[in-house]
């Protein structure tokens, strides 16, 4: 494996990490706000707050890690994506800022404020939508070079069906991933009511999620045939992913092990995410930028990989400790809180 591939695999893995933890986070915010509106907050709020509180900051770092890493490994992406993404990325920053700060303000300042919770929930759906635009742009056809500077054609982007398919997928996936996770978490907390409610949401969102996901593949056929063909070559990965999806739904339907359901769900998304990534190879921005012509110099690549390994040696035990103390700590999950507000 050469360094280019290693670099993109590392980054893709971290992006996948972000997709999962952020989906749980965004979806939880939405369900929390929704439960407030329909008057079910007593069932859900405790479960959601207990999970979200210790990890909200960590979730954000996954994203920072990805964009710092991609500029490090592939500096040319700063030139292309940096120039064209000013407006969409600024909106995403704005939403992330509102979300991060209002979460802290609400939790520590004015607990239970309806307006905050509502903004928090809404931003959770808008952020995935605004971030997923990058995926659309990377498929090519929206960026042209004018005087050597990349320029984004917003109107073409706006009216492209591909854009809207990806936006829809990001929203349905967020709600699906989050509800499956929270079903498991609520079940661990022995909260029967919350489990039942989250289970219902998981089943509701399963079908729209898989329909929008399949829709993307159809859309790509019209938009980027080369990518579509490469995806067809990887049909077995998508097929496996679909089987995992069916098993997840089956398990949840039959109220079997929710933990296993969540593991299968992660497997399903990992397969689809990596199959999508592999079929995108070697382009970072089709057809202007590949991972080869944007790769950093050898010395930097090696030092980044060394720093990455050293960093992981520090992070993995810490993350394990975090999970053990909260996610896998029965007393904490059940709400024997150590926190005195």
């Amino acid at each position: 494996m050469n360094l280019e591939i290693l670099g993109i695999v590392v980054l893709w893995t971290f992006l996948f990490g972000y997709v999962i933890v952020a989906s749980i986070d965004f979806g939880a915010g939405f369900f929390n706000a929704y439960s407030l509106i329909v008057g079910k907050q007593k069932i859900l709020t405790n479960i959601i707050q207990r999970y979200l509180s210790p990890v909200w900051e960590v979730t954000n770092v996954f994203l920072v890690f990805f964009f710092v890493g991609i500029v490090g490994f592939f500096p040319k992406t700063a030139f292309y994506y940096g120039t064209i993404l000013l407006v969409p990325a600024s909106f995403a920053i704005l939403l992330l800022a509102i979300r991060g700060s209002y979460y802290a303000f609400e939790t520590y300042g004015a607990r239970g404020h309806k307006g905050y919770s509502f903004m928090y929930g809404l931003s959770g759906l808008l952020i995935p939508a605004s971030l997923s635009i990058v995926f659309t742009i990377s498929e090519g056809g929206f960026v042209s070079l004018v005087d050597g500077q990349p320029v984004l054609d917003y109107w073409t982007l706006f009216k492209s069906p591909l854009t809207w398919s990806i936006v829809l997928l990001s929203i349905t996936a967020v709600l699906y991933i989050s509800s499956v996770f929270l079903t498991w978490y609520a079940n661990k907390a022995k909260d029967v009511e919350a489990t039942a409610l989250m289970r219902k949401y998981a089943l509701i969102w399963a079908l729209p999620m898989i329909i929008t996901a399949s829709g993307i593949i159809v859309e790509l056929r019209g938009h980027n045939l080369e990518h579509f063909n490469r995806m067809i070559d990887l049909w077995w990965m998508f097929g496996l992913s679909f089987l995992l999806f069916l098993s997840t739904v089956w398990i949840i339907w039959n109220r079997r092990s929710y933990g296993l359901a969540f593991v299968l769900l992660v497997g399903q998304f990992a397969l689809a995410f990596f199959a999508y990534g592999i079929s995108h190879y070697p382009y970072l921005l089709y057809p202007l930028l590949t991972i080869y012509d944007s790769f950093t110099n050898r010395a930097m690549a090696i030092s980044l990989v060394v720093a990455f390994i050293a960093g992981l040696c520090l992070l993995l035990p810490s993350l394990y400790l975090l999970l053990r103390l909260f996610l896998f700590n029965k007393r904490y999950v059940r709400g024997d809180s150590d926190y005195h507000p």
């Binding site: 509180s53 210790p54 990890v55 900051e57 960590v58 954000n60 770092v61 920072v64 890690f65 710092v68 890493g69 500029v71 490090g72 490994f73 500096p75 950093t296 930097m300 030092s303 980044l304 720093a307 990455f308 960093g311 520090l314 992070l315 810490s318 993350l319 400790l321 975090l322 103390l325 909260f326 904490y332 150590d338 926190y339 005195h340």
Partner: peptide, 26 residues
Amino acid sequence: ALPLFMETFAFFFEAIFLGIYLYTWD
């Protein structure tokens, strides 16, 4: 890029332990 990259690790490290400290009060 190296120190930029390392900064995110330092930040990650801090974020994890701040979360732990805050929610294991007693």
